[in-house]
Design a protein around this nucleic acid. Structure first.
Lengths: 209, 209
DNA sequence: AAATGTATGTGAAAAAATGAACAATTAATG
DNA sequence: CATTAATTGTTCATTTTTTCACATACATTT
């Protein structure tokens, strides 16, 4: 095990491993080798072993990895073996969809508060959660245990949403808005952009001879 | 300009450039240097110039890049300067959200058909589109000009959805389902997984000292 | 308990991506 | 029309990431 700075690509792959391992577990598979797991994930077997080596030794030589145990180990390594409280800012179409999306809670990301600056939306109940004025955000961070911010505003309001989150002491933001945001360097921002995937597919189709 | 195989990371960044450049254009900026654009995108200026160099020479030395022109050039390079017809398979919560999401059409990805295998959903109208039995997919590919598949099924049905798309002659798939799929190598698959971004944020917060 | 087969963990090599540096080119200025 | 200032396109060095190869370790069999 090494305490280097871990590549972002590794984190991304670990998420894939969890996904595939969870599927294997559903199918009753108890042990798997890096080679078979690699095939299912479309990566190189060494890659998997190396990725895991950043965090510890989880396998048994000559045997492989115990599926259930490995899932737990990876989740623990990533810090997702607990529930994270999330604050959503921007109750538009996308925001509503995320509030209703059950998958997040299942994976340990519990949306506990929804904020919007539109007076017509404030007070509305979406998926059992009351929409609150964004100005109230700071005051609810501790009360609701909000740790991660989710921005689902239109692009022009993304920066303001980010400011509210940062001001509230939030240290991690997942930004679904179509805009870059500026935050202090101690705050982590992840940009979610579906269109990039579409562009990638379009490019690949286009450039196939 | 070089005709090498272009890194996936470059494609991803090009999408970011388009996003930021579009914002600049909205704000009336006509010319921008790689340095300023780089700052807005949180990347290195050389990186931008290098990424663009894969596709041509779009700048003017001593001046910079003409914003509007650069957007067009990048879009053309990616093959997204036209409309792509899309088929969505799986009309659940996420599928419905995507069908209602106007952003896709704005960016050139027009969802022209929605498929599901659930008899209760077939015939339903979602966002002006009738839900059709997935078996009908192949027959509608040509008629509707379907080129890109979007999978929004539960994980256990993702592979079947992929099979229908591949069988229909679709060459590019954007997979929102929580499962890996197997397709012939001439078919491009992009996996969309929000949770990866959440994991990344959780990991960063956790490992911050 | 020795031998055998298997699959991990890791160090070294190869490949790829990034960043710095600079020559080339343009516009503006005197 | 030469000079200056600015900024691109591109080469080269550096860093990072990926892949290979093998010693190490475990389980099973004889």
């Amino acid at each position: 095990m090494k305490t280097q700075n871990i590549p972002k690509a590794t984190i991304k792959r670990l998420a894939v491993y969890i996904q595939v391992l969870s599927g294997l577990k559903r199918d009753g598979v108890e042990v798997i080798s890096s080679e078979k797991l690699a095939r299912a994930c479309s990566v190189n077997p060494s890659q998997i072993r190396k990725d895991l080596a950043y965090f510890g030794e989880f396998g048994v030589r000559g045997v492989g990895y115990y599926v259930h145990e490995l899932i737990s180990s990876i989740k623990h390594s990533l810090g997702v073996d607990r529930v994270w409280g999330c604050a959503l800012v921007g109750v538009g179409n996308l925001g509503r969809a995320l509030l209703r999306h059950k998958e997040f809670a299942l994976r340990g990301f519990s949306i506990r508060a929804a904020f919007d600056c539109d007076p017509y939306k404030i007070g509305e109940i979406v998926s059992g959660l009351e929409v609150v004025c964004t100005r109230q955000l700071k005051g609810r961070v501790d009360e609701f245990g909000l740790e991660v911010g989710i921005i689902t505003t239109p692009p022009e309001r993304a920066q303001r949403a980010a400011n509210y989150l940062v001001d509230g002491g939030i240290k991690g933001i997942v930004n679904f808005a179509q805009a870059r945001i500026q935050v202090p360097k101690e705050v982590t921002v992840e940009y979610v952009d579906f269109t990039h995937h579409f562009y990638s597919v379009a490019f690949n189709i286009s450039s196939a001879d």
